[in-house]
Nucleic acid binder design. Structure first.
Lengths: 204, 204, 204, 204
DNA sequence: GATGAATGAGTGTTCATTCAT
DNA sequence: CATGAATGAACACTCATTCAT
């Protein structure tokens, strides 16, 4: 059983990966089953032995992202100090974006129009990250390391920075941001979120 | 003449608005000329008296956004102090997002796959905002109001916060963020970017 | 009356001429009422004040050709001797083709598919010419100038030569034929039809 | 492989034949893919598995005609004496027209408006025949069998006769020509081209 | 299981024709 | 009379999906 299962799983995987690539390149609608099949090296009909429909491919891709237990990494980082935490999260998210670029891009085209996909994406991918971040913030505030703040605002604010910067690095290579080494990026952002921009503390 | 022109412009406008709505709801591909026409209350063929093609509709929507001279607002705000500037920009962008929601959403489905659209969107919509923000930062740093920082990182970081928060407020009404009054939002973000999160300055 | 009539006729004429040109250039189907109207300098709707439909334009063009009482010329030439007659007919037909090129070409695209048009074209344009030619041949045979022959075969044979040569001169400028002076052409054909190709009589 | 190939070829053939018929009956533009498909007994979409586009069907039909190596027949006939040659060519062309009627008629509607098709038709179908005829004439002139003549005029003259007569026989059944037995036709034309029409030689 | 040929529903676009001005 | 904006029927073409082999 495990043998058959494994073969089947492997092929499903291959199909999903090819689908993600094609979806990412052409968008969901312009992508064709034929091309996905060709990229895996199988016949178009074969895909239907593994997936119900073209749409099911997309939803499976969404699940793939969701399954990547993002929060685990976050929880592990929660034992670090503020500086370390922010650096770890940044690092992890940048990696995540790079690793899953085709999957994320594949979803991006459809997430805006499919209500269920949108909800799914939010509740499964974004919300947990916010929640984890919020929990961390609250803990640190309680410890007196960070000042009190409205975590439901600050968490998505930080997330937004990371996301946009990641997108810019991936999609707009001509913007300066693409050339900045990753550690410099992390350092600058860490400082921004910990110390803000005021000149206040500088002179001391 | 002015009369005809005006009628023509009005109808173009109506078509564009309907197109944006349908694109936003269904995504560019699932949207049909027939439905757009029906929403305006005209025949499908009539649309082609005003726009070359379905794609031209999308590009016009993009132009509509681009033409909205974002930077003017930013420039006017550049005379304010740091707190006022951040608040003004935040306010303006939140308004912009709300005002242009269907247009933005219409673009969102295609901007990921159409190279030319992507470049256009970046160079015309995002880059100017970054540049304006960067200029402001540099000025304030020179004045000694803000500490030195890498503006090419900080500008998109702030932009990302604003964008994600705007998206959440618009698309995910079930998230807490939707209920926060706008001025509280602005206050919290202003504080975040000016002072950071460290408890350092708090107790003193 | 004559005044109104004349204006109306003039405009009909202009429309017909424009239609013939566009039909000739693009073929009946690719031709558009809009372009025909533009070429006359009127609005598309106006054409319908003069002609029932697009098809009516085509039929009117056919009538135009038919009205050109071809046979009159032929009858006048029938008093000439054989050499003069053939030369006159050749000359006249070459002129006719050149003069009516757009009209003929306009019809050419449709004459193959429209049964009524085909019949009309044959009975009104070709058959009379054949008949006239046949009558002439019979007269000359009776006079002993020409040898007996099956006129219903010879007439279209000569006509076919003239038509193909005319088409080649008009449509295939790269063929040698386009450069041959008209009188040389007429001379060669006259000789061909009168004397044939045999060397028989040459040496004597 | 040969098996699949053959099936595929057969179906391509069937589609082409159906297309030629419909094009011939309705003309290229009025013909619909749907009707062509129906005539073959397949779904419209299936046609696109065999041909790129509707236009490609037309071009394939043109190729079909072109591939019919006309000149081979002509070359074989070139060993015959003048009378035999003319008879052979006439016979062959009449057959060719009858055999390919739908294909020829299919092209006829478009050959007048499509520059590339026109050129193709002339250079591939007509020109070689003229050239072959011209070569034959020159040979016979050199042998002293035929009198010197301008072959570039005589060749299309003869071709024109054959073409028009063929068209009349096919398209205008009510004309006398349709009833004339083929051998009488050939005899009359042979005599026309060899001896001409002058009574000159008759009395001797 | 795998194939890939066949399907046919669905859509952007054109353009002859109409009719309110 | 003339206009030209509006109409909407018609058609080529695509591609997810099926199913006989």
């Amino acid at each position: 059983m495990g043998w058959h299962e494994s073969l089947r799983e492997q092929r499903k995987e291959a199909i999903l990966e090819a689908a993600a690539e094609v979806f990412a390149q052409k968008g969901y609608h312009r992508a064709t089953i034929k091309e996905i099949a060709a990229r895996v090296g199988i016949a178009p009909g074969t895909i239907y032995l593994y997936f119900e429909s073209k749409r099911a491919l997309l939803l499976s891709i969404a699940d793939r992202l969701i399954t990547q237990r993002v929060s685990e990494v976050l929880e592990q980082a929660s034992s670090l100090d503020a500086q370390g935490y922010i650096a770890a999260v940044l690092q992890e998210r940048l990696d995540f974006f790079r690793r899953n670029q085709p999957f994320l891009q594949a979803l991006a085209t459809e997430v805006w129009t499919d209500e269920s996909l949108r909800r799914r994406f939010f509740t499964q991918v974004l919300a947990p990250v916010f929640a984890s971040g919020a929990r961390y913030l609250e803990k640190k505030v309680a410890e007196g390391v960070l000042r009190p703040c409205r975590v439901e605002i600050v968490a998505p604010a930080v997330a937004g920075s990371i996301i946009l910067i990641s997108l810019l690095r991936i999609f707009v290579p001509e913007y300066t941001l693409a050339d900045v080494p990753e550690d410099e990026l992390i350092e600058e952002l860490t400082r921004l979120y910990l110390d803000g921009l005021s000149a206040r503390g500088e002179g001391e």
